[in-house]
Design a protein around this nucleic acid. Structure first.
Lengths: 336, 336
DNA sequence: GTGAAAGCGCTAACAT
DNA sequence: ATGTTAGCGCTTTCAC
């Protein structure tokens, strides 16, 4: 004999009221006489009634869940964003359906569609490049979308980021000020606008300001793994590089370790600056100097923005830029 | 004018068939004449019809989503498990609702309840200790639960783990074989049965086998953060410790760095063995020797087990023990 | 302040 | 192979 699920109807019958009234007390509607409210609450307690969110979702057309598309939770960068998202979501009574996309265009589309099928009230997207197909899907559905730590040059949807150009320019300028001449720009895929447009632009800006000619050969693009960083060290050294801005913390640690393995002293003979200040930058030896992205905040603010859009509140600015800092640690010369 | 949502009814009308037939083709039911299937598919395409998963869930009492309760996604240990879970979930057409519990007993209960309200088909739980209250909630609902990388001494529900006792015993024995005499047991909360019972037991076993007396003062319990690890170094050194088994990779790195900062040579004068082999163990300098937990696999197998339970398939063993390995790296003496 | 009743969009017998 | 018909458990007008 299966345990019978208790429905709103059971509660109504036991409390001698209508379903509507039960619904009202469950939803905190004030239009209920205190005495009836009390009576209903007692029955709910006694029967151990739990509202069914699926039925509620169907009837109200709101699921109080938002979809989060992330390349890979296993990447501390995205995990930190996800954490910020989840905390704010919880605060506003939303739940998160998390979906890994593997940066795979096909899977992204598919994942987006199952999220939409599940009637999520909104979507937060993190990733590289927004393909045209993805952008088309975004605008086809009426479901609000916010990008977190992700840039779409088209700026159709809301987004939360920092000033990547300024930040990169600043750290590269720092290394130049420390006397470095041949600074490499090391990064994951340049097809990601953050890397290929913003960060690279900041890098070039710093060079221009210091009257240093841009050298294409000092731009290194590779999969951002620890091992690739280690392998890259040799190449950089051969190219006469004496400092590197690295987009991707894990890649930065790999590079740093590779440099040290080659018996080059850091930061005296070689400086490294990382880009995200995810927790691993503090695990490195020496600890990595890094741009400090407010990872958690980017996620939190993105979620907050999404709640506003879902509630159709007034939005002053849908492309939010958060402040960043620079954390000088052991891989660059101490500031005077 | 709001865009009208297309329902199964619209498709049925346009295709001159019944809703039931449309439902059949959507669900891949073979009992449909190829020609009608084709016709329906065309209409679906033309109208851009998307099945509503919420309605489907209400009608079928299956949501094809599972809840995942995790202390903190930002912890690489849990993120890796989550990744394994998600991949297998995707493979079986399930989605994941991810909820951070912060190891907070109250929040865990609450999160569990909202997951149940959303009618998830199953739950994967990761955490420390299963409180009695939580266990009660688990058994009260008919929703299947599987523990991933988490031990419940009561063994009421399915779980996936490794042999923590054996693994710990082995690595401690290794350090003893390397000539270390005063080996510390450093760990996060001992109230977590994995730490307080299994790992500590393994540690004691190794001592017994080597005829070394157990010394309570060599057991260190603390919040597993990088900084705490660094701070702990001094204490260990003062206590005359010459090796440490550390439960928690981030804590292990902190300790290692602290030891090195104190100018003690690793592994000659001090050995360290970590417990999880999450990616950060390779970022340490020197790289950390560690027990290699199959993190991804634990998540994947847990999800697979859950699918079986949800499908009411035959389960041979609900407490699964996966194999582990030991990875000898730079923080212990090389094996001969 | 409360109730009646009509859906929400779909699945699942049960017929045919 | 296809259609009919109840629901699934809730919200939401609209009356009263």
């Amino acid at each position: 004999m299966e345990k019978q699920t208790i429905t709103i109807y059971d509660v109504a019958r036991e409390a001698n009221v209508s379903m509507a009234t039960v619904s009202r007390v469950v939803n905190g509607n004030p239009n209920v006489k205190p005495s009836t409210r009390k009576k209903v609450l007692e029955v709910i307690e006694r029967l151990d009634y739990r509202p069914n969110a699926v039925a509620r979702g169907l009837a109200s057309k709101k699921t109080t869940t938002v979809g989060v598309i992330v390349p890979d939770v296993t990447n501390l960068f995205f995990a930190s964003l996800a954490r910020g998202i989840d905390d704010i979501a919880t605060m506003y009574k939303y739940n998160i359906i998390l979906a890994n996309s593997d940066q795979n265009d096909q899977k992204e589309i598919q994942v987006l569609n199952t999220l939409l099928a599940k009637q999520v009230d909104g979507i937060i997207y993190m990733g590289n490049k927004i393909t045209d197909e993805l952008r088309a899907e975004f605008s086809r559905s009426k479901t609000p979308v916010v990008l977190a730590g992700t840039i779409d040059p088209e700026q159709q949807v809301g987004s939360v980021n920092i000033d990547y150009i300024g930040a990169t320019e600043e750290v590269v300028a720092n290394m130049i000020a420390n006397g470095k001449k041949n600074i490499a720009f090391v990064s994951a895929s340049l097809s990601n606008p953050i890397n290929g447009q913003h960060r690279l632009k900041g890098y070039k800006n710093a060079l221009v300001n210091a009257n240093i000619a841009f050298n294409e050969a000092l731009v290194f693009e590779c999969e951002p793994t620890l091992q690739n960083g280690e392998l890259l060290a040799e190449q950089l050294l051969e190219a006469g590089v004496d400092a590197a801005y690295v987009a991707g913390d894990e890649l930065a640690i790999g590079l740093l370790n590779g440099i040290i393995n080659a018996d080059v002293s850091v930061p005296e003979a070689f400086e490294v600056t990382a880009s995200n200040n995810s927790r691993i930058t503090e695990m490195a030896r020496p600890k990595l100097t890094s741009i400090m992205l407010p990872l958690y905040d980017i996620g939190a603010v993105a979620m907050r923005l999404l709640t506003k859009i879902m509630n159709k509140e007034e939005i002053d600015e849908k492309s939010i830029i958060l402040p960043y800092k620079i954390v000088n640690r052991g891989t660059t010369s101490p500031k005077k």
